[in-house]
């Protein structure tokens, strides 16, 4: 029997509160490398918080978080989480994130947005970084907008630049946090098509928080249904959306799609 490789994401009993609000109440998850996972569930259920913890933007309150075999946080005797800075930066280098509101740097043009990290984090020379940035802009269909400032781009174009910017660091894991929620309806399709293309390559592990149920169903290998800060249901899309064993997911999907 072939040995199964260790999961690229491994979470055990992950907890996180903001103020008095317990957002994550004990999340256990293993994601093998290359898998595309859709994360659905009502707002406030902890989906975005999960991504923030995976991007190491925030520290968990308790539990284990392991990415590619490394744990950036260690619990101190007092219970607080302490970061090993070198490990934090190393692990962050393996993860990329795309945000709902793009968060492009408004004072840099599209090309500079994509080049910034390859130059300053990977230490590429300006020429190499430029070439790489143009390559990724081309992959998202925006080679002709390299010189455009973010304010001159449509929402969909901004989001594609943001995707190129994250990909340019060649992360092993990509996190997408409601990346189409701030877009005009007619611009959603282009961004989703891009995600679909990425998922099909199977070279990057993808976690996609989304409200597009059809997208979640068609493009993901696996769907996580979040409710009240825990993964309430977890399975392949066909099972979650159709088999009826997952009652809560079915009710949520019905409510969202209006079927």
């Amino acid at each position: 029997m072939p040995e199964t490789p260790p999961p690229i994401i491994r979470l055990r009993g992950l907890r996180k509160s903001y103020g008095n609000v317990q957002v994550l109440r004990g999340v256990d998850l293993d994601v093998p490398h290359g898998q595309t996972v859709s994360v659905i569930g009502p707002s406030g259920s902890g989906k975005s918080t999960l991504l923030r913890l995976l991007m190491l933007l925030d520290a968990p309150d308790a539990g284990e978080l392991e990415i590619d075999g490394e744990s950036p946080w260690t619990a101190e005797p007092g219970g607080r989480m302490r970061a090993d800075n070198a490990r934090l930066r190393r692990v962050r280098g393996k993860v990329g994130m795309v945000f709902q509101h793009f968060n492009l740097f408004p004072h840099m043009n599209a090309l500079q947005n994509v080049m910034e990290a390859p130059v300053s984090v990977l230490g590429l020379k300006a020429g190499e970084a430029r070439e790489r940035a143009l390559d990724y802009l081309d992959q998202v269909g925006l080679a002709d907008k390299a010189e455009a400032m973010p304010a001159q781009l449509s929402g969909g174009q901004k989001q594609r630049v943001a995707i190129a910017r994250a990909l340019a660091l060649q992360p092993r894991i990509m996190l997408f946090d409601e990346v189409t929620s701030a877009l005009d309806p007619e611009l959603v399709g282009g961004v989703l098509a891009l995600l679909r293309g990425l998922a099909q390559r199977r070279t990057i592990t993808m976690l996609i928080v989304t409200h597009h149920m059809r997208f979640a169903e068609r493009c993901a290998d696996r769907v996580l249904f979040f409710e009240n800060g825990v993964i309430a249901e977890d399975g392949p899309p066909a099972e979650l959306f159709h088999d009826g064993v997952h009652e809560r997911t079915r009710r949520f999907v019905e409510a969202v799609t209006g079927d």
């Binding site: 280098g93 994130m97 945000f99 509101h101 968060n103 492009l104 740097f105 300053s120």
Partner: peptide, 20 residues
């Protein structure tokens, strides 16, 4: 969000301050 993006791109704190 600008700080979040800088962290997600793994920029150093100094680089984040001066460039972003």
């Amino acid at each position: 969000g600008q700080r979040d993006a800088a962290v997600a791109l793994n920029l150093s704190p100094a680089r984040t301050l001066f460039r972003v």
